[in-house]
Structure formats: C-alpha cells, structure tokens
C-alpha cells in the first residue's frame, strides 16, 4: 500500500528524518510510534504532500506519490480544528469538495455519516455552538468523508473524551474491515498496541525497528512466566541434576505465593509444568510478554 523509501528531511539545522524506510501493507492497522519530536509529524506531512522530502521517495500502491493520491488519503492532524463561524453542513461540504467529491456525492455521504453518528440535527449549527466532544465527531467524519483508502490519524485520542474514543475506535475498526488501511501515529504506545498489527518505532529521526507486532513481541520474549500457587512459603525448585528454569522472584499474596520464572536452555513451559505440578498446587500461569513500550525503552537504551 505504502512504501517509505530512505526518506531524509532537513529543517535548517535540524534533521527531522534520517534515512527512514518501511512498508505498510494494504488493509493493515499500522502504528507509527515514537516519542514527541521523533519526526512522526514530519513524515506524515510528507505522506500528505504538505512538504516534500529532501531525499528518498514514497510509493502509493507502487506509484510515486502525486497529486492524484490526495483524494485517496484522509488525514486527521494532531493540530486540528474547524472554521468556528461556518455551518457544520457547509463546512463538511467544503472539506469534502476540496478532497475532490462532487457536490451531490458529498451531500449524500455527509447525510449518511450524520445518520450513522447521530448528528442529523447538526447541519445548521456552527462549530462554536458544539461541545468539544461533538466537535471531535465532526472532525473525524471530515477525515473519512471521501472514503479514503489510507487514513492517517495523528495522535487521534488525545483530546477526545473516553466515550468518543470508543465510538471512534469502533468506526476505525469498521473502516479497516471494509478495506481501508489505517496509520496511527502516537507517542502513547500502549494506547494503540491492541489495535495495530504492524508498527514502526522512530526515535530521534531514525527508525529503531519495525515489523508485525506479534513478531516483534516474539523476538523480545524472554520466556518468563508468572506462576501463582496456593502453597504459602514454598519455593519452586528445579528437578535434581538439571536446570529447567531460574526463579527470578517469589512473593506471598493473599491466597498463596506468586513466582516469576525464566525458562533455561530452550526448555518448553510444558516441561516445567510437568515438574511443578508435583511440587505445588497451581492456580494460574501467565507468560510475561513485553509491551511495545518496554521494547521501545529497551531499544532506546541499547542504542
């Protein structure tokens, strides 16, 4: 769907993007992650053709990005707003027509979305008469009104109230199911972890890592497990003669003990389980999987 190839962007003395490359698959929900000032917005502006890269290129469905792609992208910027004095309906019509829709098509789509989002009565209202939550809904509809193939959402959930976050999350998932590719850009990695299937991590203008969320997590898994058992005061032990696992930590809690173990020498959890089942009465077993945030922090430290 989108190939970012070796993009460099320099602002006077500040290097905003330093040879960044990655690929976004059609129909995926893609996370563009990184702390504030990493270069996410610069990259998004390049994809939206608001600015141009100094070096490198971007391919949209295999073609070099050009003006005809503008109508196929929907963009919700981090810095967003609407004309305060303009009627909502007229404003929608204007934004949709700027994206290349005919007036008739635009009117029909707006009606459809207004019904869907329960905004039918808003057509003749002004933005300044709406609550913040209502404005956010309008803003979201304006982003997707022209049925874009690629929807770019820059920090979509900051400033949205929790009820709207859910409404909009569901709409996004719905649009994705209908074939739209979604790019989430955020510095709050935990907020999109559950939604994204692939991510790229950017820090200080450079790409740190990218790939499928499941693969990345797999690669960073440490084979650690949290085990809860009801025998208070008993420590988990390895079988005599060989090392199955290492106990990292043991704590007492109300209904017994909980221990963190790490498997050793490529052993499977089933091996450990077969041994432990004779030792203690098991209550719960969970694999400790690193969050994207943990992985990011680890990567930044290592670099």
């Amino acid at each position: 769907m989108l190939e970012v190839k070796d993009i460099v962007k320099q602002y006077a003395k500040h290097l905003a993007l330093d040879h960044v490359s990655f690929t976004i698959k059609k129909g995926s929900i893609f996370g563009l992650l990184g702390p504030n000032g990493a270069g996410k917005t610069s990259l998004i502006r390049i994809i939206n053709q608001i600015t141009a890269p100094d070096h490198g290129e971007i391919l949209f469905n295999g073609e070099a990005l050009s003006e005809k792609h503008i109508s196929r992208i929907g963009y919700l910027p981090e810095e967003r707003g609407l004309y305060k004095k303009m009627l909502i309906g007229e404003q929608m019509l204007y934004l949709a027509q700027l994206k290349g829709l005919s007036k008739a098509d635009a009117t029909e789509r707006i009606k459809h979305w207004f019904e869907k989002m329960e905004m039918e009565t808003w057509w003749n209202k002004r933005v300044e008469d709406l609550s913040k939550g209502m404005q956010q809904k309008v803003q979201f509809v304006a982003t997707v009104i022209h049925q874009p193939e690629l929807i770019i959402l820059d920090e979509p959930f900051t400033g949205f109230d929790p009820v709207n976050v859910d409404v909009i999350k569901n709409e996004i998932i719905d649009l994705n199911k209908k074939g739209a590719t979604i790019i989430f850009s955020t510095h709050r990695m935990e907020s999109v972890e559950e939604l994204c299937d692939s991510i790229v991590l950017i820090n200080k203008s450079k790409k740190i890592l990218d790939g499928k969320v499941s693969e990345i997590k797999n690669a960073y898994r440490k084979h650690q497990y949290l085990i809860k058992y009801s025998n208070k005061g008993i420590q988990l032990k390895n079988p005599e003669g060989y090392e199955l696992f290492q106990v990292l930590d043991t704590q007492e809690y109300e209904e017994g003990n909980k221990a963190t173990i790490e498997l050793l020498n490529g052993h499977h959890i089933n091996d450990a389980l077969a041994h432990l089942i004779n030792q203690v009465q098991l209550q719960e077993l969970i694999e400790i999987i690193p969050s994207i945030h943990d992985i990011f922090v680890k990567q930044v430290k290592e670099n």
């Binding site: 608001i50 967003r80 700027l98």
Partner: peptide
C-alpha cells in the same frame, strides 16, 4: 485559519 488549526486539514487537500 492558523488559530483554528483548520489550516493543516485544508492544505492536506
């Protein structure tokens, strides 16, 4: 337009 922050939406079109 700059104050409203509507400008970035417009210039993406």
């Amino acid at each position: 337009e700059k104050n409203n922050r509507v400008v970035e939406i417009i210039i993406s079109s």
